[in-house]
Design a binder for these strands. Structure first.
Lengths: 121, 121
DNA sequence: CTTTTATATGAATGAATGTTCATATATTCA
DNA sequence: TGAATATATGAACATTCATTCATATAAAAG
């Protein structure tokens, strides 16, 4: 038993019922994109910082001890998934979190790992 | 202004205050690992299915129309981050979600994209 | 005990992705 | 206008990662 769809042992009733409940592929795709924003240390650190204040690119670079370029690239990424919004004041661009789903998701994630949900092996 | 730490415009008070509030690097690392589990379509589809029932590897392969091998690899991944637990019954291995943080996180993610938080540009 | 079946797993491969480097843009200040 | 500064961005490079393929393990059935 190996190749795609050459599956022999299935529980047809269960499979059929679950199938009708699944989210659409498109929504799953969008969801994966959404979670990719959280799946990187640098982006998480940026969001973590923005939980507490609005910050400019330089502030973030200083805070994370990383180059302006690296921070800026990640901020563009976070802007594309609508996790941050920016406001330009003169030369300086200030970033803040776009909504509080970010805080919620980070909080639940922390709960999970604090209850032993860490990577193992 | 370019290289690491050659930052000139910073808001020192703000940076210092935020710095004291940040999660530890270790926790951020664990958190990123945790979210990586959600950052892939296949794993999301698996978790989506397991929201509704306990399923064996064959069920999942059928449901997602993917090879047994691909599903199995991802299930091992999900087991390492403690997102699923398995139970062997004869030759068959049944998988279910380990806790309800997974459901919570998926729910908040869906809320985000349904409120316009999709990828843009 | 041999065959079949369900699952696991190591290695290889191709695709996706984060950082760096160089440079572009835009705004302030002299 | 010209120099300095804050940020953005494209290309290159290195790394990470998901799937495939081949094969191993383990349980059931004949």
């Amino acid at each position: 038993m190996n190749g795609k769809c050459e599956v022999t042992l299935v529980h047809p009733e269960v499979v059929q019922r679950v199938e009708s409940l699944l989210e659409s592929r498109e929504k799953i795709y969008d969801l994966a994109n959404c979670f990719k924003a959280f799946a990187d240390e640098t982006r998480l650190r940026i969001m973590n910082a923005l939980l507490y204040d609005t910050l400019c690119v330089c502030d973030l670079a200083k805070l994370l001890d990383m180059t302006q370029s690296a921070i800026s690239h990640q901020l563009q990424y976070l802007r594309q998934v609508n996790f941050v919004v920016s406001q330009k004041v003169g030369k300086v661009v200030y970033y803040r979190l776009a909504d509080d789903h970010i805080e919620q998701i980070i909080k639940v994630g922390l709960e999970h790992i604090e209850e032993g949900g860490k990577y193992e092996r």
